[in-house]
Design a protein around this nucleic acid. Structure first.
Lengths: 151, 151
DNA sequence: TTTTAATTATTAGCCTGCTAATAATATTTA
DNA sequence: TAAATATTATTAGCAGGCTAATAATTAAAA
């Protein structure tokens, strides 16, 4: 009987395909200014709160600790952040933006807007708003609904 | 004057977050039946057309050749497919489903439906349809709009 | 105080993506 | 036919994800 599924008709299928394509686009856009896709999200958080510990970044960026460690390694290598022991607790280290890390924000934001526009090409204003709303709902499905994380 | 962006208000930001969360969910769901997230898409294509060459899979799965090679390596290791030289052209090899590769379809489909349901929890029927539609549009933005690939 | 438990960060190793470089075979062109 | 070009697949190496295992320090319990 084996009721065969039309995989292509599922949201998951499309999501997987869009996901891959978007990640490539993100990587390409950020590559033009010498960055990698994942590093951006660390910078986002540091621009809001400079000097976070790795564990704080883990909580905010929502990826696993070893992943953040690697992202920070990359950012250190290109001299956008530093990692220093803090006094008081010798387990922790704080990650600080360098001058350059602060300065690059404008350039990165410009690139971000290009990314945004390139992925929304072909959608009407209304569709964009609806998509934003639905993605938000999808996200809260995963993060455990009903949270408003400012700050 | 450095007009600061609210990154969180962009579709790209949400897309990036959903991307990561969904990929984790996919990996977790498929992990329960001994598979990895990417391997599924190779199987999808082989169920439609058994015996494709690597280059055919590359075109259909829409990821780079070395990536497909690795996915196939994994599938060979767990004995869901085989890779054999074809006569006529000694450059190519064809990838064939094994008995087990064919049999696992039902189990995988069941898991796929669970994935689908878990990601759509919290969306109304209408929202699901709209999301499907919008993801389709996003996808064609990347693949070069206006294609209908059946078969 | 000494032992045990918890916290913080890193390392090792795997899968999914990628690009660039190789290897091997087929095809075209000279 | 010989040389140059195409095609097909793999290998090497990197970033972004993950989990599991270590290392190091701090805090709690005995």
């Amino acid at each position: 009987m084996a009721e065969l599924i039309k995989f292509e008709d599922t949201v998951s299928y499309l999501l997987a395909k869009v996901t891959t394509a978007f990640r490539n686009s993100l990587e390409r856009h950020m590559g033009t200014i010498g960055l990698h896709g994942g590093q951006i999200f660390v910078l986002f958080e540091l621009w809001k709160h400079d000097g976070l510990r790795l564990i704080d970044l883990v909580a905010r960026v929502n990826v696993a600790a070893p992943t953040v460690t690697k992202m920070v390694d990359g950012l250190i290598e290109i001299r956008l952040v530093t990692r220093t022991r803090i006094d008081g607790d010798n387990r922790s280290k704080r990650i600080f933006l360098t001058e350059r890390g602060r300065e690059m924000r404008e350039e990165i934001e410009a690139q971000w807007l290009e990314l945004e526009e390139s992925c929304l090409t072909g959608l009407t204003e209304t569709e964009r708003l609806v998509l934003f709303d639905l993605l938000g709902k999808l996200r809260s499905t995963y993060t455990g609904a009903g949270e408003n994380e400012d700050d």
